[in-house]
Amino acid sequence: MISILFAVLTALSNGCASVLQRRAAMRVPDSAAMRLSLFGRLLRQKVWLAGIGLVIVAAVCQAVALATGPIAVVQPIFVIELPATLLIAGYVMRVRADRALWYGVAAVTVGLALGMASADPVGGSDTVRGAAWIPALVLTGLFEAALIGCALRTRGDVRAALLGLAAACGYALTAALMKDAMARLDDGGAAALLSSWQLYATAAAGVGALFLLQNALQAGSLVAVQPMLTLGDALISIVYGVTLFGEVLRTGWWLLPELAALALIAAGCVRLARTPLAAGTLAPPPTAR
């Protein structure tokens, strides 16, 4: 129960952060894309710094959630970040949420509940044993490189979506590394945590994912980024949970409601993408592309 509560708090904090970071990224010209100077421009904006503050809050909440629950339970809850982001954006920008938005929110919420009840993730260890990290890191690096390479050949919302998925992969990796690092506290206390390579890899992966997300938000509309970010993070995290931590999901006929839940979540995301709030209010101005 504690892990679910803190996972929800993480999603809400990230949703607020996305809105603030998107508003800041809209003011950055294309010439700063995929350059370290992007951070220099963003650091001069108070709204972006406020967003980073919420990212830190979300990271603390996520660490608590991962330390008290399986990654295959915690990370999928983050799909509520998409509807939360749009609802928060509507409140901040004083745009009334229409019926389509509420339908999308309901679809994502019901889909998440159905998926979690059907999959019922259980078991698994708190740490990754042996050299299992080696193939995981290699495959993740290749996947990230392919996404970034394709993104650099495109523009607009296509680039934003590809970089959003790359950021999702980075955040899923960050969560897996964070869970493995937090388990060191039980084994040897703070000294074991500070001496583990997973802690510093968590920081590196998190910064890399943040860099990709800022470029995704700068490249296109929020609605192009957020579905890829939330769904990608959830699905890739489940893969990490099963392959690295040995967590077990229901299979057999349970795959039917699990696929139905995934379809419902996807339909909800599409519905949200078509709302005036997402397609209009949060889209970047024409001069930003």
Rank of each mutant, 00 (worst) to 15 (best):
W254R: 15
R159F: 00
V248A: 07
P29R: 05
I71S: 05
G141H: 00
G280N: 08
R22E: 07
G69K: 01
T127H: 12
A136T: 00
M93W: 09
V242W: 00
G280S: 09
L9D: 00
K46G: 13
A288I: 06
A84S: 14
A175P: 11
P286G: 09
G123L: 14
V28S: 08
I77A: 03
A168D: 07
G220V: 05
A263V: 03
A209K: 10
T85G: 02
A160Y: 09
G220D: 04
C269T: 04
D157F: 06
V108G: 03
V128T: 07
P76C: 00
G149A: 13
G69L: 03
G252L: 12
D180H: 15
L173W: 02
L152M: 14
G69V: 06
A58S: 14
M178P: 10
W133K: 03
G51Q: 03
G246Y: 04
A224W: 03
G124M: 11
P286L: 13
R23P: 02
V92P: 01
A181M: 07
V64C: 05
P276T: 03
I2P: 09
G115E: 01
G188V: 13
L139A: 14
M178A: 15
L173D: 01
A161D: 04
G15T: 04
A50S: 08
V225P: 04
L277Q: 14
Y171H: 15
G206R: 11
A113R: 00
T281K: 13
P29V: 12
V128W: 00
G206H: 12
G189R: 14
S31I: 09
R159N: 07
R27H: 05
G268V: 01
A146F: 10
A136G: 06
C269G: 00
V105G: 03
L86N: 09
A100L: 15
D126F: 05
A100W: 13
L173H: 06
L217G: 00
L87I: 08
A136V: 06
A288C: 11
S196C: 12
P284I: 00
L212E: 09
R96M: 05
L87A: 04
A260L: 14
D98E: 12
L5Y: 09
L199P: 08
I236G: 02
R155Y: 01
Y200A: 05
C16K: 06
R23K: 07
R274T: 12
L199G: 04
L194P: 08
C169H: 12
V110W: 02
L43T: 14
V47M: 09
G111R: 03
A192T: 04
A65W: 12
L86Y: 04
F39N: 11
L210I: 07
A261R: 06
Q75D: 02
A224D: 01
T154L: 06
L112I: 02
S37Q: 11
V55F: 07
G206W: 15
V225M: 02
A24K: 08
V74N: 01
V122N: 07
G189N: 05
R129I: 10
A209W: 08
L264G: 00
G69E: 06
L142I: 14
T174E: 14
G104Q: 14
L152T: 12
A117K: 01
E81T: 15
T85H: 03
A166M: 08
R153M: 15
I236F: 10
R35A: 09
L255S: 10
T127D: 06
L86T: 04
D186W: 12
